[in-house]
């Protein structure tokens, strides 16, 4: 009897947790399906006739589609670049002994913690002088400051888990370190590489401040676009929520795929 009641309590509490986590998303999606007139009803209505007009208008008339494409280009390119630079570095950190290893580590952790505004100030001035404002390449490079450490960290960890014997055997046959990495270790490290790519994509896709400061129109990112709807008196709530929904859906899917590694990644491995 007592056990049953405690199970019931557990169920109620768990349902409460789920509800609290999910409700804002429910509200976001339903608001995105409201016309402006319905969205501005006070108090808000819960049952109404849904319409996709907000999505159509936002995507094709206000240019949200283009900013989503910009965000996609930037997030994918910066992720690929981070992998290209980061995977060999991770291999070296996992396999070689060299001076300065500790300093590199320290640098990565600092990058995880430093406020982006610290970099945004000088970046703005540098980009302005080099005529790099409002260009995709600028954000692709800047996002390396947080993507590269996360890629290196996760992939190093993955390489460390691969037994040395495999390397040794290949080395006896005369394979170079590069071949060992590419042909033997990298295929085995693919899960880690994939997770680090997901992280890198999520962080880049979600970023607002650099996008806001360093782009105007050509390279404008989707979050910066969503924020620019917030000007003026009659805020287009439905359209803002439609844009938000479009921004959030891909990251939520990726986050669910990588959900097991999310905490490990966010703590840079301090919590397993």
């Amino acid at each position: 009897m007592r056990r049953q009641r405690s199970t019931l309590w557990q169920l109620v509490l768990l349902a409460g947790v789920i509800l609290l986590c999910v409700f804002p998303f429910y509200w976001m999606v339903t608001t995105s399906l409201k016309t402006q007139i319905v969205a501005l009803e006070a108090p808000p209505v819960w049952i109404f006739e849904p319409t996709l007009d907000n999505y159509r208008e936002a995507l094709f008339e206000d240019g949200v589609l283009r900013t989503l494409v910009n965000s996609l280009i930037i997030a994918v390119c910066t992720t690929l670049l981070a992998l290209l630079l980061g995977v060999p570095a991770a291999f070296a950190l996992a396999r070689f002994e060299f001076r300065g290893k500790k300093d590199l580590w320290f640098w990565f952790i600092t990058n995880r913690m430093v406020s982006p505004i610290v970099l945004a100030l000088p970046f703005f001035l540098i980009a302005r002088n080099l005529d790099l404002l409002d260009k995709h390449i600028t954000l692709i490079l800047i996002y390396l400051t947080f993507n590269l450490p996360i890629v290196i960290w996760i992939v190093t960890d993955q390489f460390r888990g691969i037994p040395y014997d495999l390397d040794e055997a290949a080395r006896l046959e005369g394979a170079s370190q590069f071949t060992i990495m590419r042909k033997i270790c990298l295929p085995l490290a693919m899960p880690g590489v994939a997770v680090s790519a997901i992280f890198s994509f999520i962080f880049s896709w979600n970023e607002l401040m650099f996008g806001l400061i360093l782009t105007r129109s050509d390279a404008k990112t989707a979050p910066a676009m969503a924020v620019s709807f917030m000007e003026g008196y009659d805020l287009p709530y439905g359209k803002i929520m439609a844009t938000s929904t479009l921004i959030v859906i891909p990251v939520l899917i990726f986050a669910l795929i990588a959900s097991k590694q999310l905490v490990r990644g966010l703590t840079m491995g301090a919590v397993k």
């Binding site: 804002p24 607002l208 969503a226 921004i247 986050a255």
Partner: peptide
């Protein structure tokens, strides 16, 4: 799985949701 959702959400979207 539900717990994963809030922490992956774009910060800017959290702010917009707050406005609404």
């Amino acid at each position: 799985l539900s717990l994963v959702l809030p922490m992956a959400t774009t910060y800017a979207v959290v702010g917009l949701l707050g406005q609404v």
